[in-house]
């Protein structure tokens, strides 16, 4: 080792662990599970990654509703594959979260008891087939905008999970847009169905990108840890700018009378978001909060005997194997 390197190492040791940690993140180094990390980093990551996992799992429910009612086999296999992906994404994320020293059981407990949140968009009902199109196009579109920057986040297991999620997610959005396109090129009634879905999902999709920057409490810290690379308002603007031209191609009207292209800023100006509605849904008073949790908790409880039986079987097989080994 050179003299300069030696000096460097010495100076590093004298700095506090936390400073070294922050410096590693500034240098774009990844943090791995067994590395030292501040308690707040661990807690914040458990909160965000588990919320993300819960959202994938609860997100299956509104779409599961339509699997048996899909209008063709082609649509059915696509929707089935999308919902299966979401289960997979939930599992990648739960595993990443568990590397921070929290158990899967604790995580499920937090979801089932209402202690942990999930994306509030899944508390809206899916009342027509067009909702499958709107969810893929808008909800997955907003999710992708949120998720792509996370592929570079500082916590290694989370970043790796996000890379896999993002790779798989783009089919979700495309299949949604294709559903919208078919409806828009169909009969007048079908086109109205697509418009109605856009009317209902547009604002909740904008809310999905989180509270405005001036009230978002976690933004500053999350930016520092690269848990966030862009602010909520920046992400929302990006979503609107890329989605409005897509609505134009469909021939649909975005339900915002104040929406208009601003030549000066190079962005769309848009109307006031009803944050009161957002907070009501977050607090549990959305149209489907209760239904979603009942479905989720019910499925978990009804599956208990299956999980227990699998475990009992595994133990029995293990004992059998050991006895056979002894007999030889």
């Amino acid at each position: 080792m050179s003299e300069a390197q030696l000096k460097n190492t010495g100076a590093e040791r004298s700095r506090s662990l936390e400073e070294i940690f922050e410096q590693r993140i500034v240098n774009d180094e990844k943090i791995e599970p067994k590395d030292w990390m501040p308690e707040k980093y661990r807690k914040t990551h458990i909160r965000q990654i588990s919320q993300h996992a819960h959202s994938e799992i609860v997100g299956m429910l509104p779409e599961g509703n339509w699997i048996t009612r899909a209008p063709s086999l082609r649509r059915k296999v696509a929707l089935l594959a999308k919902v299966q992906d979401e289960a997979g994404h939930g599992l990648y994320l739960y595993s990443a979260c568990e590397t921070l020293g929290v158990s899967r059981d604790e995580l499920y407990d937090q979801l089932h008891s209402g202690k942990a949140k999930y994306s509030s968009i899944f508390n809206y009902p899916t009342i027509t087939w067009a909702d499958m199109g709107a969810i893929g196009w808008l909800v997955d579109g907003a999710a992708i905008i949120n998720q792509v920057p996370l592929c570079n986040t500082s916590y290694g297991p989370y970043a790796r999970a996000m890379i896999r999620v993002c790779k798989e997610e783009s089919f979700h959005q495309r299949q949604g847009f294709e559903i919208m396109m078919s409806l828009c090129n169909g009969t007048e009634v079908q086109k109205q169905m697509a418009q109605d879905a856009l009317n209902r999902w547009w604002w909740p999709s904008l809310m999905m990108l989180g509270p405005t920057d001036d009230v978002s409490v976690h933004t500053a810290q999350s930016m520092k840890w690269k848990l966030k690379r862009k602010t909520n308002d920046e992400l929302r603007q990006q979503f609107i700018d890329q989605t409005v031209p897509q609505a134009d191609i469909l021939g649909l009207t975005v339900p915002d009378p104040d929406l208009k292209w601003n030549e000066e800023t190079g962005h769309y100006d848009f109307g006031e978001i009803d944050w009161e509605e957002f907070w009501q849904v977050v607090k549990g008073h959305g149209p489907c909060n209760k239904e979603r949790m009942n479905d989720r908790v019910g499925a978990w409880e009804r599956g208990t005997w299956v999980r227990d039986a699998a475990m009992a079987h595994a133990e029995k097989q293990q004992i059998k194997k050991e006895n056979q080994a002894k007999a030889v």
Partner: peptide, 11 residues
Amino acid sequence: FGSLHAADAEM
């Protein structure tokens, strides 16, 4: 690739 929970190796 990652991890998962299962009752035994086969699962």
